[in-house]
């Protein structure tokens, strides 16, 4: 049974009175432990599909089932809780909280759990260890390079140990060397930690690191 099961999904936006069809009857499955790259031109609906899988947006029609849960059936607070337990999100621009240290940024999702402060700190440090940044735990985002910020963001995404990771252009704001390191890290998460990963990218080299590639164009999967 696929971890991500998207069936006949339609997503429309309305700008003023104009209807914009972003996803047009998408069928998309990702098996457990898979690493799938979603590629396609700008405006093809990659990020929209990713948002639907991550439970931060709802389809206009169709079904999105992730980690055994039909997302359309959840209300706002149930969906938030589901996200905190099942999905880790990696953003293109890292989106770390600037006033918090690396450790506190990683600890942030754990504030929603009943863990004690000590346990939260231990888990956050473990996650930072995984991304090889435990020595920068007390650094603020402004004191880190782009690659390091993205690694902290990855640590934040995995700290609750979610089965699914979604990454939106994770190397889009990085130089080639840092991008390579981040891709290697994502590969490790997939291969060693058995995370199911869905990654949106423009970068063909990044796409090549995935086990499978899906091409999206004008809201339709073409390959």
């Amino acid at each position: 049974m696929p971890v991500v099961d998207v069936q006949n999904v339609i997503k429309k936006y309305y700008r003023d009175s104009q209807e914009i069809l972003v996803l047009n009857g998408i069928d998309f499955q990702v098996e457990e432990g898979d690493f799938v790259a979603l590629i396609g031109p700008s405006g093809s609906g990659k990020t929209t599909l990713l948002n639907l899988i991550a439970g931060i947006d709802q389809p206009t029609a169709g079904s999105v089932r992730v980690a055994g849960t039909e997302l359309a059936r959840l209300n706002e607070s149930q969906l938030a809780r589901w996200r905190s337990e099942n999905v880790g999100f990696i953003f293109q621009f890292y989106n770390l909280i600037p006033v918090l240290t690396a450790l506190e940024n990683v600890e942030l999702p754990l504030l929603l759990t009943p863990l004690s402060r000590k346990e939260r700190r231990e888990r956050a440090l473990t996650a930072l260890n995984v991304v090889s940044l435990s020595d920068r735990a007390s650094h603020y985002p402004r004191q880190l390079s782009g690659g390091q910020e993205q690694r902290v963001a990855i640590a934040r995404a995995i700290v609750t140990d979610p089965p699914v990771l979604v990454a939106d252009e994770p190397t889009g704001d990085l130089d080639a060397k840092s991008a390579e390191e981040i891709l290697a890290l994502i590969e490790t998460l997939n291969q060693e930690f058995k995370k199911t990963i869905v990654m949106v990218t423009h970068d063909p080299r990044a796409a090549q690191r995935a086990k499978h590639r899906k091409h999206l164009d004008k809201g339709v999967l073409t390959a």
């Binding site: 931060i56 706002e76 607070s77 996200r83 999100f89 953003f91 989106n95 909280i97 942030l108 929603l112």
Partner: peptide, 16 residues
């Protein structure tokens, strides 16, 4: 705004 978007993405409810 982005930070609030991130908090919600991480699982913070609207009420929280």
């Amino acid at each position: 705004k982005v930070e609030i978007g991130v908090l919600k993405t991480l699982g913070f409810t609207n009420l929280k």
